[in-house]
Amino acid sequence: MSEPESVSFGYQDVDPAEKTARVGAVFSSVARRYDIMNDAMSAGMHRLWKARFVRRVKPREGEAILDMAGGTGDIAFRLAEAGAQVTVSDINQDMLDVGIERAMERGIDGLVWSRQNAEELAFPDRTFDAYTIAFGIRNVTRIDRALAEARRVLKYGGRFFCLEFSTTLWPGFAEAYDLYSHKIVPRIGEAIAGDGESYRYLIESIRRFPDMEAFSGMIRAAGFEQVRSEAILGGAVAIHSGWKT
């Protein structure tokens, strides 16, 4: 895969190495308040989206699942309830540290925590039965490489599931959502996390992310089959899936 000259960081185009460093700084800054902010920004709806996402994954007892960009453990905890053997990976150690603390507080044992770059996973080929990534793929510097790595570490018959913000198609709601995102969310971020700029980036990163059809095309280009996307809130959020055959 060729090295891109520039990639998006919010509304800016920057050098790939700069994006990786700046995204790392964003998540180190917000790690301790990340889950509180998710509740505030989505009025708690992110919990429903994540529960729906895990139902689509259909984790089974004993199967190996890699939860990439799993940070604070929200998805991993749900997967583990079904008896799956979950490896939680994130490029940001501060996010992983929060997840480890949350697991200890809840008495959740058996999770593997591993700092990993989604573009260069250290796991052998065909290790996992499923790969999940929730609200993380848009922050990856080279998305095509992350998708290729996801396919590489999946077993044949393994499944890929991604939960990510997208572009709502509901008339009227799109305009209201855009206004809320750009004007209100940074203020909430400043009030709760003391960091409005990081949340400004997170909103901008949503706007720069491909729409459902375009991202589905990227998943197919990575070699996945039976690619599907499921719209939530008219496409403001989407569940993407594909299978390795």
Rank of each mutant, 00 (worst) to 15 (best):
F209R: 02
D15T: 01
E61I: 04
L121F: 13
L169D: 02
Q93E: 14
M95E: 13
L169F: 00
T132R: 11
L111P: 00
E213S: 13
Q93T: 12
R56L: 14
I184D: 08
D195S: 10
G194V: 04
G242W: 00
G136C: 13
A76C: 05
R200S: 09
Y131V: 13
T141Y: 12
A146S: 14
R151A: 07
A80D: 01
R22V: 04
G62R: 15
F173D: 03
E119Y: 05
L179Q: 09
Q116C: 12
A76P: 02
D74R: 00
V14P: 01
T20F: 14
G83I: 01
E18K: 06
M41L: 13
H182P: 00
T168C: 10
R187F: 11
R152I: 10
V30H: 06
R200M: 03
M1I: 13
M95G: 12
A148M: 04
A80H: 05
V54C: 10
G71M: 10
S28A: 14
S114M: 15
S2H: 09
I239W: 02
A40G: 06
V112E: 14
A176L: 15
A150Q: 02
S205C: 11
P16H: 08
S198V: 07
I206F: 00
V98T: 09
G107L: 11
F173M: 12
G189F: 03
D97P: 06
A222L: 06
A80P: 00
F77Y: 12
A80S: 07
A150W: 00
I75R: 04
W170L: 09
R55F: 10
V98I: 14
G242V: 02
I184V: 15
I75S: 02
V26C: 04
R151F: 00
L121G: 09
W243Y: 12
L79I: 13
F135L: 11
G83Y: 00
F215V: 09
E63L: 14
A64F: 12
R55G: 07
I65E: 02
E164T: 09
V140M: 10
R52M: 14
L202I: 13
G24E: 08
L233N: 15
G107S: 07
Y177C: 02
R207N: 14
Q12R: 12
A31W: 05
V237G: 02
A51F: 01
Y34R: 09
F9Y: 13
R22G: 02
D13S: 08
A82P: 04
Y156D: 15
S166W: 01
L233P: 07
R159T: 14
Q226G: 05
D74C: 05
W170Y: 05
N117V: 07
G83L: 01
L202T: 04
A103C: 10
P59M: 04
A134P: 12
